[in-house]
Design a protein around this nucleic acid. Structure first.
Length: 473
RNA sequence: GGCCCCAUCGUCUAAUGGUUAGGACAUCAGGUUUUCAUCCUGGUAACAGGGGUUCAAUUCCCCUUGGGGUCACCA
């Protein structure tokens, strides 16, 4: 049997990280089984249309390396299909018209809440006479079509959780077709998954309780029932369902902050699944090879930003300088950093190993291309004094001024030259290197002075030392 | 509240009817180093509780507790 999975988000305008993982797992499984990965847009709620959302979704999915094999199928373009199926249900008495107003439903719900009885539709419209119904229909009274949930219970086997049974009396007579003629999720999802021959429904845990409605529909239509795999939720640090209120949830936001798609994919893949338990870093290809629905965890996973940061740093460090330059271009642009290519290349080379995101590269570029305001006290090493710092900086000025340009081709050569000065004078490293580094960076923490000299070049280095010296009176 | 689901270090997780319960992130302490980062070494840290079953339970069963999800003409 040809495996078909689908990712079926509603078009909210961005891709939620939970959605990313759902899409990823669906993609991994389809690829591993040599099957088909479908994208379907669930836009049956006309009150929540977001312009451009479909395009944004496809763009993000594609840049994340998860392009669908088929689709996008747009539910709002398939209304006839849903109506047709609704009619079938009506004809067989599996569904019924409901003319109840929203006000009545609201009152009903409040009553049920007050009396602590089950929150279900009371089937007031189920026993309407044929004449009544025809008349209301003829008068265009607003109405919906509801599923007539049969008695009994519904059992299904989830690929991740095993057998689950829910009493049908717990299931509401779900609205299938809304007043506006659009289907609800429950109708559309069943009709479409069948129509598209989806074999494995991989989706979030929050859908588990509505599976009975779907199974009931599958049975009423006589459709074969697909496999279900409900993924554990991705959680906030407080263990609630990952939400906007507690940080970024949009994949686009992470991308914009300078997280790499590889890191995001890798990180999210490990939320609820552990391919081999002997390492943390996996390529997409490896994930495809190792993916196993039965090995997915049952419990929710907290989204740990610290680990994402670490992982992004790991991926960043595997990139070549040239790759990092390319990757950081959009960040330089949005941060309005104009910088010389060769200078930026050196910044990348040096900052590479202390990077967490690409945005930081743009930040560093900005800092290093600005003239700095000095904090004179920073120039003095804790074990030395002003006179000492001044003496060394003056001496170093001439050391650097006399360096051949060829020395600047290699960080190690710069280091050798400076170290030679230290050796010949039998100085302490700190006496020389601290003021030098501080003069160049005016930062308490920074790359070492050799790297800074190499990065800034002779002129800028001398200029910065001069500036520092002018403060040491 | 009804129903459903879940339960190993702070977090992500591995393993097993008999193990010193392993790894990673975070954290702490050392080493390297002028500082930071990297890197190296080491440490702290978990089987929610109670009953069973068993020669033996973290592992299997039950209960409790805790957490989560869901109860829309939203998905």
């Amino acid at each position: 049997m040809n495996v078909v999975t689908r990712f079926a988000p509603s078009p909210t305008g961005y891709l939620h990280v939970g959605g990313l993982r759902t899409a990823l797992y669906s993609y991994l499984f389809a690829k591993q089984q040599k099957g088909t990965f479908i994208l379907r847009i669930e836009d049956t709620d006309q009150t929540r249309l977001v312009p451009g959302a479909v395009e944004a979704l496809i763009t993000t999915l594609t840049t994340m390396g998860l392009p669908p094999d088929k689709g996008p199928f747009i539910q709002s373009e398939r209304l006839a299909l849903y109506r047709e199926h609704t009619q079938r249900l009506l004809d067989h008495g599996h569904a019924y018209y409901c003319f109840c107003s929203k006000e009545r439903l609201l009152v009903l719900r409040e009553e049920q809440q007050a009396t602590k009885s089950p929150m279900k539709y009371d089937r007031a419209c189920l026993h309407l006479s044929k004449e009544d119904i025809d008349q209301k229909l003829a008068e265009n009274v607003p109405h919906v079509v509801r599923l007539l949930v049969p008695e009994g219970k519904t059992t299904f086997t989830d690929e991740i959780r095993g057998e689950i049974t829910i009493e049908n009396k717990e299931v509401d007579d779900q609205v299938l077709l809304k007043t506006d003629g659009f289907p609800t999720y429950h109708l559309a999802v069943v009709v479409d998954d069948n129509d598209m021959a989806v074999t494995h429904i991989i989706r979030g845990d929050e859908w588990i309780s509505s599976v009975p409605k779907h199974i009931i529909l599958y049975n009423m239509f006589g459709f074969p029932i697909p496999k279900f795999a409900h993924l554990p939720l991705i959680l906030n640090p407080d263990k609630s369902k990952l939400s906007k209120r507690q940080g970024d949830v949009a994949v686009e936001d992470y991308l914009a902050k300078g997280f790499l798609k590889e890191a995001l994919i890798n990180f999210v893949a490990l939320l609820g699944f552990n391919p081999t338990a002997d390492r943390e870093i996996y390529t997409l290809e490896e994930l495809i090879a190792f993916f196993d629905l039965s090995k997915i965890n049952k419990s929710g996973a907290v989204f740990d930003h610290d680990k994402l940061n670490w992982m992004n740093g790991m991926y960043l460090r595997t990139k070549t300088t040239q790759e990092l330059i390319e990757l950081s271009k959009p960040f330089l642009k949005t941060s309005n950093v104009i910088i010389d290519d060769a200078f930026f290349a050196r910044i990348v080379e040096i900052e590479k190993e202390r990077l967490v995101t690409l945005q930081e590269l743009a930040d560093r570029a900005q800092e290093y291309s600005q003239t700095i305001a000095y904090d004179a006290s920073l120039l003095i090493w804790k074990k030395a004094d002003t006179e000492d710092a001044k003496m060394h900086l003056i001496a170093l000025k001439s050391v650097i001024a006399n360096l051949d340009e060829s020395v600047f081709s290699d960080r190690a050569l710069v280091e050798t030259a400076i170290k030679k000065y230290i050796e010949e004078g039998s100085f302490q490293n700190g006496n020389v290197l601290w003021p030098l580094r501080a003069a160049l960076s005016n930062k308490e923490k920074s790359p070492n002075p050799f790297e800074l000299i190499w990065m800034f070049g002779k002129d800028e280095s001398l200029k910065r030392i001069d500036q520092a010296l002018s403060l040491l009176k």
